[in-house]
Simulated assay, not measured.
Amino acid sequence: MTKPIHILNGPNLNLLGTREPEVYGTMTLADIESACIDRARDLGVPLVFRQSNHEGQLIDWLHDANVNASAVVFNPGAFTHTSVALHDAVRAIEPPVIEVHLSQTAAREDFRHHSYVAPVARGSITGLGLQSYLLGIEAAAKCL
């Protein structure tokens, strides 16, 4: 059996649906999870979906993915722009990591233009809302 794709979500994504809907839309994280489960099922790939507001937890989950995942779809949230530790964790694991973002980070505040994750991810998909996740799952599945 194929190892699952792990979808990891960073800080404040638990507030989707109410947090800045003009930027992130009105879908909740539960809505995104449901759509991701459906897409993974269509592709015949098991899925693990997680969210944490804590950098260390995300690092632990990346380490776990090294053994228990076939690929990772990762929305590091604001840690994208600040975390060398997440950069190092992504670099240290074998499964391909696809970075995703709901918003187009390059069109936002200057501090959001740099990603510490992108240089060590297999690829990045940004600015497409829910489609960023769904395309991330498809890309991860093609990497298998």
Rank of each mutant, 00 (worst) to 15 (best):
R50P: 01
P119I: 11
W61F: 05
M1T: 10
H114I: 08
I93Q: 10
V117F: 03
I125C: 13
Q51F: 12
A85S: 12
K142S: 14
I137C: 09
E22M: 04
G10T: 00
V72Y: 00
G136M: 07
H63D: 08
G44L: 11
E99A: 01
I32T: 15
N66L: 06
R39T: 15
S83F: 00
Q51P: 00
T80W: 05
D31C: 07
S52M: 07
A121R: 00
A35C: 05
P21F: 01
K142M: 09
E22I: 05
R39N: 10
I5K: 00
R108Y: 06
D110T: 14
A40V: 06
A141S: 12
V67R: 15
V73K: 01
F111E: 14
N53G: 13
H6Q: 06
K3E: 11
L13P: 04
V48C: 12
N66V: 01
P96I: 06
K3F: 04
D38Y: 05
A140I: 04
D31M: 14
A107L: 08
L47T: 09
Q57W: 11
V117L: 03
P4A: 10
G77V: 04
I32R: 14
L130N: 08
A106Q: 12
V48L: 14
L29P: 11
F111H: 09
P11I: 03
L134R: 03
L130C: 07
H101Q: 09
V100I: 13
A30P: 05
T28F: 07
G129Q: 10
P21G: 01
E55Y: 10
W61N: 01
E33I: 01
S34C: 08
G123M: 10
T105Y: 03
K142T: 07
T2S: 14
F49K: 03
V90T: 09
T26H: 04
N9H: 14
M1K: 14
S70V: 15
G25H: 02
Y133T: 08
V117E: 04
L15Q: 11
H101M: 03
N14A: 09
Q104S: 09
D31L: 10
F111P: 02
A141H: 09
Y133L: 12
T18W: 01
V97G: 01
L128A: 04
D60L: 13
V84N: 05
D110C: 11
R112H: 07
S52L: 14
F49E: 00
A92Y: 03
V84R: 14
A118N: 02
A89Y: 02
L47M: 08
G77M: 02
D88W: 13
L13A: 10
P4M: 12
G17I: 07
H6D: 06
L86D: 01
E99K: 02
G56E: 03
S70A: 15
R41C: 07
L47D: 06
F79E: 04
V84S: 05
L13D: 03
G25T: 03
P96S: 10
G17L: 07
R112I: 13
G10N: 06
